[in-house]
Every structure is written in C-alpha cells, then in structure tokens.
Design a protein around this nucleic acid. Structure first.
Lengths: 205, 205
DNA sequence: AGACAGTTTGACCAAGTGATCAAAGGTTTG
DNA sequence: CAAACCTTTGATCACTTGGTCAAACTGTCT
C-alpha cells in the first residue's frame, strides 16, 4: 500500500464520517470536533487532511452532484417513454433508500439557498433542459400525455427524496408499518401507479 | 392600546422576524444577534421577551403546526372524492406559495429528526390515520382508485412543499419561466392532472 | 543507526455566541 | 410630582468553535 493510497483511503474515511455529521446537523450545526471524533482523530489531524470545514463540505457536495444526476442521465430517448419514466422513478427511489445521507446533505444545501453549489446548479439546469426536450418529443409523438415536463421531473424528485429527507415524519405517520424497508416497497408501488397513470397517453386507457 | 396588547404585538413582531432568520439559516445557523437585529432591538431586550433561543424556536414550531394541519383537516368525508383531493392539493400549494418560510422551518426540523416536535408529530399521525380511513372508504365505494392512502398523502405533501423548500433549485431549473409566480400556476395545472389521473376510479376513463 | 518525509497531537488563540445583570430610561397611575 | 412598574441597554461572562503551531512521533530508506 503506497503512501498516497493510504492518504486517499484516510481522506475517503474522513469524508464518509463528515457526511454522517453534515447530513444529520447541517453545515452550521456540525462542528470540526464532531467530525474529528466520528472519524476517530484529533481536530488538528483532521485539518492536516483538509483545509477547513468548508473545504470538507464543498468536496462532499461536488462529489454528490455527480451521483445525483446519474439517474436522470440514464433517461434514454430511444427507449419506451413509460418504461423510461418508470425506471427513472425506481432508480431515484432506490437512491433515497440507499443514500439518505446524500439526499439530506443536498436538501440542506437547497434550503439554505445553495450557497456552495450555485454554479453546479447550472449543469443541473442544462440536464433538465435536455431531458425535458426528450419528454416533449415523446409527447409530440403521442407516446405519452402532454404535461409540463419540468414539473413532472420536479414531482419525481420531490416524491422520491421525501422518503429520505422527511424520514422521521414518514416513519412516525406509518407507525409499525414503517419499521423495516417495507415503506419503500409500498412507495414504489404507489409512485409507479401515480406517475404511469399521469403520463400515459390519453387514447390508450 | 393596553400594556399587554402592546407586548403581544411586539412578541408577534419578534416571532415574525425570527421566522425570517430561522427559515433561512436553520436553528443552529441562526443567532440571537441576527434575530435581534432583524427585529430592530438589542439582544438583552430580545431576551426580555423570550426565555431564550430555543423558546423562540419552539413557539414558532408549535404555532406553525396548527396552520400546517389545517388544509388536511378540511378534507371532507361527505364531499366528492376527486374534488376533495383536488381542493387539498390546491390549498397545500397555495400554502407553499404564500408561506414558504413556514414550510422551510418545518423542513429544517424534519431534516434534523424533529428534535423539538416529536410529540406534536403524534397528532399528525392521528390526523393522517383519520383521513386515510376516509380515503379508504371512498376506495371501498369505488369512488376513487385503490391506492395506498398514506403514500398518496406523502406525495401531495412532497410535491407541494417542494416548491417552497427547493425554491432555489426550481427557479434555477426554470430559468426565466420561473421569475414571477407563474411557476405556481404551472405546478397547479400539472399536479392537478397528475393526481386526478392517479386517483380516478378505473371504470370511468 | 540516522536522516528524512509524513503524520499526530497538546496547547493555544481570536472570534462568536447564548445568556445574565445591574443600572438607566420610560410610562402609567395615585 | 412621585411612586411603581415596565422596558431597554452597556458591560460582562462562560463556553464553544474554527483554526494555528511547534513539538513529538512514526515509518521508511540508506
């Protein structure tokens, strides 16, 4: 194991621990001491690997956005409209289930007005523009219902991320139903029904 | 104007200013100095009216929850299923438009795991249970599609609150389209279509 | 062993923060 | 007017927090 690879591993470990802390308490609510303790090292040692609190946060956000956009990237213009949308919803819901920390980190940043990712949001805009055009094309071909493509995408984001960001609320309301991972299965069934009905072309019932 | 009414007015003003600050920066991210400055008084003066930072925050949250549940309370078992759901979505979207600060305050609290409103969430649970039973009844009568009522409610919450909580993202993605309040009109149209299609009974196309 | 780069830490600092308090400034009431 | 009460504030405190630094420690290579 080389020197640099050990350093990379350690940085990775620190970032993972920092994600725990930032996702749970937000940027201002998290302290370097917390992160250092979570990672099992001293605060000066933590600052040996990263320039500062903001450096850690920014690094987490930038790596997050890559993965965050991946599911939408996969939306294939050559595929079947309903199947593509169905697949996108499923992937997004899986991300909410498997990466809730990332979802909360992102939600935190949006709530604060995205002070650290204002330029990256522009990429997002371009991507949505591109995928909206695909959806628009499908609508023009009569292969799906004519709806506002951007608001469709917003709704998919909102409904899926809700299960990560508002997890406490969801589990409280569901009570015992919400104990295991079953709520994600139920959510998948419901969202599939909701959106497929919503985007199915009017001629075919 | 009596002594107590002037005091009440001032407390009201402070709470309003505190809402600005808390909604924008979260609990940990907000400082008493910020709130005091926003309200135009000194920090000790602020603490003359409220016991402390947490007191202000808790008061905001408890008053918020009353209004927050109101739209769902209005869901009338005697009404027409589709019209009731349509009305609920509209009311919820109007709240996101007219009370974004409240929505963000609530979102912040949920993201942190609801440390200050754990017991109030139980009321929410009861309310959702009650309204889910109504929806269930409508489904049994064949007046709406058979879907998971709680996840339906979650989806309505998620999609409407998204426009308040993720406002930066929404406006960035929409670009110039999102400048005025037009995005709420488009959202209303889309969500109406989505949910009405989603909950319409299968027999009637 | 010893030189050397990489790593870790205790001690420390300056700024910020929630909160207190006694004293001063106003307002109402007798 | 003056007493009683309500409101406001400057000064101050204890504590947290992001960040620094020199010294010590570790492992590796010759």
């Amino acid at each position: 194991m080389t020197k640099t690879s050990r350093r990379v591993d350690k940085e990775e470990h620190i970032l993972d621990c920092a994600l725990n802390v930032f996702a749970a308490h937000g940027f201002r609510g998290s302290t370097l001491d917390q992160i250092a303790q979570e990672a099992g090292l001293s605060k000066p040692n933590l600052l040996y690997y990263f320039k500062g609190k903001e450096d850690i946060h920014r690094r987490l956000l930038s790596r997050l956005l890559e993965n965050w956009l991946a599911p939408l990237h996969q939306l294939d213009p050559a595929g079947d409209p309903l199947a593509e949308i169905r697949g996108y919803i499923q992937r997004k819901l899986e991300m909410a289930r498997d990466y809730p920390r990332e979802s909360r980190l992102f939600a935190n940043e949006m709530l604060r007005g995205a002070p650290h990712v204002s330029e990256e949001l522009q990429d997002l805009r371009g991507l949505v523009e591109e995928k909206s055009a695909i959806l628009k094309g499908w609508m023009d071909e009569g292969r799906m219902a004519r709806v506002d493509p951007k608001h469709l995408i917003f709704s998919i984001w909102a409904t899926t991320q809700h299960y990560a960001d508002f997890d406490v609320q969801v589990r409280t309301v569901l009570g015992d139903e919400g104990k295991g991972d079953g709520r994600f299965h139920d959510a998948a069934r419901f969202l599939d029904h909701l959106f497929i009905k919503g985007v199915s072309p009017p001629q075919q019932p």
